Simulated assay, not measured.
Amino acid sequence: MKKKKLLALAAVMLLLTGCGDKTKEKLESARDAGISAMEQAQYEQAVTSFEQAYALCDEKMPETKTDISLYEAACQMKMEDYESLKNTCTRILELGENADAYYMRGVAFLKLGETDAAKADFDGAMTLKPKDYEMALNIYRQYEEISQSAVGDQYLQQVLNQESAGMEDDYQKGSIYYYLGDYEKAAEALAPSVEAKKEDAMRLMGQVYLAQGDTQSAWVVYQQYKETFGETAESYNGIALCDMADGDYDTALQDIQTGLSLKLSDSSRRDLLYNEIVVYEKKQDFQTAKQKAEEFMQLYPDDEAGQREYDFLSTR
């Protein structure tokens, strides 16, 4: 009898373990489905999958709950469903403080007209990440959209006034100055990193020169970039931008096509394919430009700049 009881207990334990594994598999499957839908800009479907995954979490999985909810909140941001976004971020923050949740809930409050609550959440985000340059710039952009740049500027000054700890901080400051259109300060901040042949800084310095209309200096930087890091998609994209600025669209197209023939990251391919559309448009080959725009939108359905190009070319 004792042996039978032990066998029965073992069978029950095995069933429980099996159920746990199946639940875990369902959770991971739902999460993966959500991420896949998110990448295809199918945000409503993604939210449904993330909710299904969240429902399969238990109380011993706060980190998993937070992870899934952050994905869901990002989708709600894209959908501009600010009431749901606010609720999802509140759910995250009930599990523990999280800078991204504070930021996204701040956006929701701002869009819903709750400016005091928005500022409190943005303050919370920056308290947790006081040197997060990208977050400070994103907060500024949110206030800029509602014509309250002066409020957003407080967050930029918070990070800009901090003493730089090295070239990475200089690069981040240069990025902010570039966004603000203060190209002289951007160049000044980037100069040490460019001299040290830092990859990101060299690319950004090329953009600074292009924004100033100095295509020759931009071309020199991108050539130095190519000499330093080899024939990369980024170098050819930068050189193509110089050719485009000079109105040499045939050479720009050659540069782009050379770049596309190389080993590419997804972001590099996106940049090259987008600029290819612009080149054909500048050449007034609207039929090819429209075809390229259609292909681009199939690959990157959530790309706002690509959508604008496609909408424009659809009217030609």
Score class of each variant (00 low, 15 high):
Lys129Val: 01
Leu190Pro: 09
Glu134Leu: 15
Ala196Gly: 10
Gln76Tyr: 08
Lys65Val: 01
Cys89Met: 02
Lys131Leu: 07
Ala191Glu: 03
Ile35Val: 15
Thr64Gln: 09
Tyr133Pro: 00
Gln142Pro: 12
Gly18Ser: 08
Glu184Asp: 15
Tyr280Val: 06
Val47Lys: 02
Arg141Thr: 13
Val194Trp: 06
Glu145His: 12
Gln291Cys: 04
Asp311Cys: 03
Ala289Lys: 09
Cys89Phe: 03
Lys185Trp: 10
Gly18Pro: 07
Gly247Cys: 07
Glu51Met: 09
Ala55His: 06
Met61Cys: 06
Ala189Met: 12
Leu85Val: 00
Met167Ala: 11
Phe229Pro: 01
Asp153Glu: 14
Tyr222Gly: 04
Tyr236Arg: 08
Leu180Gly: 06
Leu262Gly: 00
Glu168Lys: 14
Ala30Leu: 04
Asp58Tyr: 02
Gly96Met: 05
Ile277Phe: 08
Glu199Arg: 13
Ser149Asn: 12
Leu204Met: 10
Leu128Ile: 05
Leu112Gly: 09
Ala305Val: 11
Lys263Ser: 15
Thr288Arg: 10
Ser265Pro: 02
Ala187Thr: 08
Glu188Val: 07
Pro301Cys: 02
Asp58Asn: 11
Leu241Ile: 07
Leu204Gly: 04
Ala8Pro: 04
Gly124Asn: 05
Lys197Phe: 12
Gln157Thr: 04
Lys198Asp: 15
Asp121Val: 01
Ala99Pro: 08
Ala108Thr: 01
Cys57Lys: 00
Thr251Ile: 07
Lys119Glu: 15
Ala150Val: 14
Met135Tyr: 10
Gly20Tyr: 07
Ser267Leu: 14
Lys24His: 08
Glu63Gln: 13
Ala245Gly: 06
Val159Trp: 01
Met13Gly: 14
Thr258Ser: 07
Met38Phe: 15
Glu276Pro: 13
Asp250Cys: 04
Ala53Tyr: 01
Lys226Tyr: 03
Met13His: 14
Glu295Gly: 09
Ala53Ile: 01
Gln45Ile: 03
Leu313Met: 08
Lys119Gln: 15
Cys89Tyr: 03
Ser69Arg: 00
Glu51Ala: 11
Asp311Trp: 10
Tyr177Cys: 06
Gly34Phe: 01
Val12Met: 05
Tyr171His: 08
Thr115Asp: 13
Ser268Met: 12
Tyr103Arg: 06
Thr228Gln: 12
Gln298Lys: 11
Glu72Leu: 13
Met297Ala: 02
Gln224Trp: 11
Asn237Arg: 12
